[in-house]
Design a protein around this nucleic acid. Sequence first.
DNA 1: TGAAATGTTGGGGCG
DNA 2: ACGCCCCAACATTTC
Length: 471
Amino acid sequence: MTRQDPIIVWFRQDLRLADHAALSAAVESGRPVIPVYILDDAAPGAWRMGGASRWWLHDSLKSLSRSLADLGSRLILRRGESAAVLDKLGHETGAAAVYASAAYEPWARASEARIDPKLFEGATLHSFDQIRTEQGLPYRVFTPFWRACLKAEPPARPLPSPRSIPAPAGWPASDKLESWRLTPAKPDWAGGLRETWEPGEAGAHARLARFLDTGRVGSYGEGRDFPAHEKTSRLSPHLHFGEISPRQVWHAVSALPGAGDGGRQFLREVGWREFSIHLLLHAPHMPEAPLKADFEAFPWCEDAAALTAWQRGLTGYPLVDAGMRELWATGWMHNRVRMVAASFLVKHLLIHWRHGEDWFWDTLVDADLASNAASWQWVAGSGADAAPYFRIFNPTMQAEKFDPDGTYIRRWVPELARLAAAHVHVPWTAPREVLAEAGILLGETYPRPIVDHAAARARALAAYERIKKAA
DNA sequence: TGAAATGTTGGGGCG
DNA sequence: ACGCCCCAACATTTC
């Protein structure tokens, strides 16, 4: 090993240059740096990246690649099993070491065990094992967890982006990004995604700046529940891909004069992301199995037709359908609507939360193993600090409360657009003339409810009784 | 980070 | 003036 043996910086879910401790350390070592991203679809136990995520990844890698080029560097792309690829690349380049950001997925941690990279924190506000109860145990309830986070040392100051990155004498070969075919071709379903998002580090910071500048932070507490208005930050996909770090978000919000209560509530949502990661680290089976074991015996229904209706936004409940169509069109769904739509699948249709988890994994641009699994289990009632199973959302009441004039519903369910606010949440109760006037033929242009709310509620409670007795 | 059922209270209409 | 009923409004408990 000589002074000129390069360091490989292995990018994963940290597709940024600023506040990237591994990259900064590699640059500071004075050695040449070889940035690499590996598309690893074959890792044992891995959840293969979903369609929307692959679309995002393509653009984010393109952006990272350009930013590296601006600093005199390159992004080397390789495909295959991570350990084997890094091993090979190490031999090709004579690399002295691999630097990477610590990751939290079980398969990522498993591959680390074979590669033994030098790991740097940055995916979370605090290092993974720092937050523990008095007894040294992981938290199972959010509020004390978050209280402990707030009491701990404040998150480290974000690092600046390197000003230049030393290049190796010669570059190893790289795949062409296009050859990975991450973006859809036939059919091209990504139009709505392109219109909605700007993947990459610059896009992430633009989102954050927009959130802070427009004063949305201050009114976040009141505004965040109304899906018709863009009151949330929409940073989730950027955070998932690590285009911006939670520490950067934390410090930007904390430094904002007058962020006040809204700022605290917003950071609390960032806290739920931390909590999900915390849970996954201590329960690696969380994506596949209920955290509360008695839910293993829950009498789920297999109902392919109902699942398809839910996926396509054809349940007959306008708020659920609007959310599912927003998801399909843009790769994202407002959080309030996610809770209602998820609750509908699990409680009204009695379909296993894993089917919902799979669909969200494939369609969300912010699909994240920890957040997705923890949130589905939260809704289903089988998770840590979960909503009790008997807490069943009434999709109509939720719609009337959080989309009172029906703006959100009309945006995503255009066949209901001509219904007045009095009918738009309950088209099945609208008088025949009103429906005709609005150009709606129930059961033809828009479905009748696929389940009756009161009956579905009773059925869900009865199902819950069965595991409660068994336990 | 609910909703429905049930219980309580108090004002007003009315015999 | 009084008691009675109705019911909206709010509170509590139950799922």
